[in-house]
């Protein structure tokens, strides 16, 4: 190649580079704008992330949007955000009204499968070890003692996706009303494992029939149990649901709430 060719190539490269820098500046400006827009309504307040999610500012770059957590979830509770959500595009979230995380996998597979550790296992591991210790103590007294429920319960109780809040205006129990029938109608596709039936697998919500004098479906279906939500005396003899500190924000209560708009909502944890 002679010299003039070489010169020409270089000039072409510099010209093209100018275009590239311009394009990158445009992308950068777009990102800056989106960041400004989302700053007001921080994404971490909008999305309920899967169990074990670390703080949102790390989550947003650590998540490489592979969707392995979506695939591993046996009840398909995890979904990927669309382009409408701006920079959160492709990141996982749980839409609890349609399908909540009911812990029926018993092992936090989404946390285990995440390659970039934005769903992070170590805190569960610690809890699991504690549970095994506890098992050692219990096992001496009762040889048939099954270790797994302890470990599972420990893992569940360390999850903190969000906190449930009861809406007193619409909650049936607050109005002293009961509920009869299936809470979400027969077309509803969501599933969960009821803690009181002893089923090993999750069953459709649409197959469950209730007949409650005072509506307490959220309390009945809560996979965590009495550390998370109980029916408490309001003070005047009425029993109403009360959320306690053990709530993990799994959202099963939201999914099974029979009112048109859910009378209990999960507020994602803010970092």
């Amino acid at each position: 190649m002679d010299k003039s060719d070489h010169e020409l190539n270089r000039r072409q490269f510099l010209k093209s580079s100018a275009i590239a820098v311009g394009a990158l500046a445009a992308v950068g400006a777009g990102v800056g704008y989106l960041q400004k827009v989302t700053a007001e309504n921080r994404i971490n307040q909008k999305f309920l992330r899967p169990p074990g999610a670390i703080d949102e500012s790390t989550f947003i770059y650590g998540c490489i949007k592979c969707g392995l957590c979506v695939q591993i979830c046996p009840i398909q509770a995890i979904k990927l955000a669309g382009i409408k959500d701006g920079l959160a595009y492709g990141t996982p979230y749980i839409d609890v009204r349609n399908q909540a995380c009911d812990f029926s996998c018993d092992s936090m597979q989404c946390v285990e499968t995440c390659p970039t550790a934005v769903l992070y296992f170590k805190q569960f591991k610690k809890e699991g070890e504690k549970a095994i210790e506890k098992y050692g103590a219990t096992h001496e007294r009762n040889a048939e003692y099954n270790p797994f429920p302890v470990q599972i319960l420990a893992m569940k109780s360390i999850v903190k996706m969000g906190v449930a809040q009861v809406k007193q205006d619409s909650c049936l129990a607050f109005q002293g009303k009961g509920f009869k029938g299936t809470p979400r109608g027969s077309d509803f596709k969501g599933i969960n494992r009821s803690p009181y039936t002893g089923d090993a697998k999750a069953t459709p919500v649409s197959e469950k029939v209730y007949d409650e004098k005072i509506c307490n479906i959220c309390v009945k279906e809560c996979p965590i149990g009495e550390t998370a939500i109980v029916m408490a005396d309001e003070g005047n003899g009425n029993l109403v649901p009360e959320v306690l500190s053990g709530c993990t924000g799994c959202g099963v209560c939201v999914m099974v709430c029979p009112t048109e708009e859910p009378s209990i909502v999960v507020e994602p944890i803010k970092s």
Binding site: V31, Y61, G90
Partner: peptide, 11 residues
């Protein structure tokens, strides 16, 4: 861009 914005911009 990724480093400056702390986002996976390209993805």
């Amino acid at each position: 861009l990724a480093f400056v914005t702390q986002q996976l911009v390209f993805e």
